[in-house]
């Protein structure tokens, strides 16, 4: 009797050149980043960084490489780095996207990849903008459950159909990619903007909420839903795939239905 058994014959023999699990291809990219530092200059300028990145890397990884290895003064927001916190919305190759959800290999790496702060909000430094005007509009539409009468002793029940009615707009992560892609918002900062309307939609069409009328009254404003020109930039920019323009149209119809 032998103590050791033979290796299973089905095991695939890998050549020695492949190190373990197969290597990830690398490529060179040029990152053009819009830099702004009010402590140095009132003018913003472009900085170029040449990097060797992997096929699995995202724009955020390239920004990390710059910040950690080349220029520590580069400033940008990021928190979870996995497309949920909504911190790192930026204008990449002229389109609003999340840096953590944009793979470098999906962009044209033969040309420099441009990275700018999102438009329409005041730039504070490099890729960081002041989000306060954005959140000001968000707060005004009362993004919380408002109910009347006695609170039930258990959870508020809702049918799957009623939940489905506003499911799309619950996905918002408040990254401001939509609002800062809206040409109306670029010229008129007083416009509530797509994100505030999307989050109002989330409660207006919630069967458990009782303040829909108040929110419709707030959005029936000169700077409210009627400012929307259905350009669809917001729907295209949303990293969560929310049909923003459709949600805005539904709020418009709800405002109209309330009047007649």
């Amino acid at each position: 009797m032998t103590a050791s058994t033979a290796e299973p014959a089905s095991k695939v023999e890998l050549p020695a050149s492949v190190g373990g699990g197969g290597e990830i291809p690398t490529f060179d990219v040029t990152l053009r980043v819009r830099r702004y530092n009010p402590e140095v200059s009132d003018e913003s300028h472009w900085d170029e960084f040449k990097l060797t990145m992997y096929g699995t890397d995202r724009v955020l990884d390239a920004l990390h490489k710059v910040k950690w290895e080349l220029d520590g003064s580069l400033s940008f927001r990021r928190s979870c780095a996995h497309g949920v916190c909504g911190s790192d919305a930026m204008r990449i190759n002229g389109r609003n996207r999340l840096a953590c959800k944009t793979l470098l290999k999906d962009l044209d790496t033969s040309k420099p990849i441009t990275v700018e702060p999102i438009k329409g909000l005041p730039v504070e430094k490099d890729l960081i903008v002041d989000m306060e005007p954005f959140f000001q509009s968000y707060r005004e539409i009362m993004p919380f459950l408002v109910t009347t009468g006695h609170a039930p002793t258990k959870e508020r029940l809702q049918s799957p159909e009623d939940r489905e009615r506003f499911d799309d707009t619950t996905k918002c992560i408040l990254c401001a990619a939509c609002t800062s892609s809206c040409p109306v918002f670029w010229t008129d900062g007083q416009y509530f903007g797509p994100a505030a309307i999307v989050n109002a939609h989330r409660f207006i069409f919630d069967s458990r909420d009782d303040a829909g009328d108040m929110r419709l009254e707030i959005l029936n404003d000169k700077e409210g839903v009627w400012r929307c020109r259905t350009i669809f930039n917001c729907s295209e920019a949303c990293p969560r795939g929310i049909q923003v323009t459709k949600a805005i149209s539904e709020v418009k119809q709800a405002v109209l239905a309330r009047q007649f």
């Binding site: 005041p122 002041d130 306060e132 005007p133 000001q136 900062g189 007083q190 009254e217 707030i218 029936n220 404003d221 000169k222 700077e223 409210g224 009627w226 400012r227 418009k252 405002v255 109209l256 009047q259």
Partner: peptide, 21 residues
């Protein structure tokens, strides 16, 4: 926050904008 982001008035002209739409 820059005043260019601050809304003035309280939706008084909302009715007109809706009618125009």
């Amino acid at each position: 926050v820059s005043p260019k982001y601050t809304r003035h008035g309280s939706g008084a002209k909302g009715g007109f904008e809706m009618a125009a739409w």
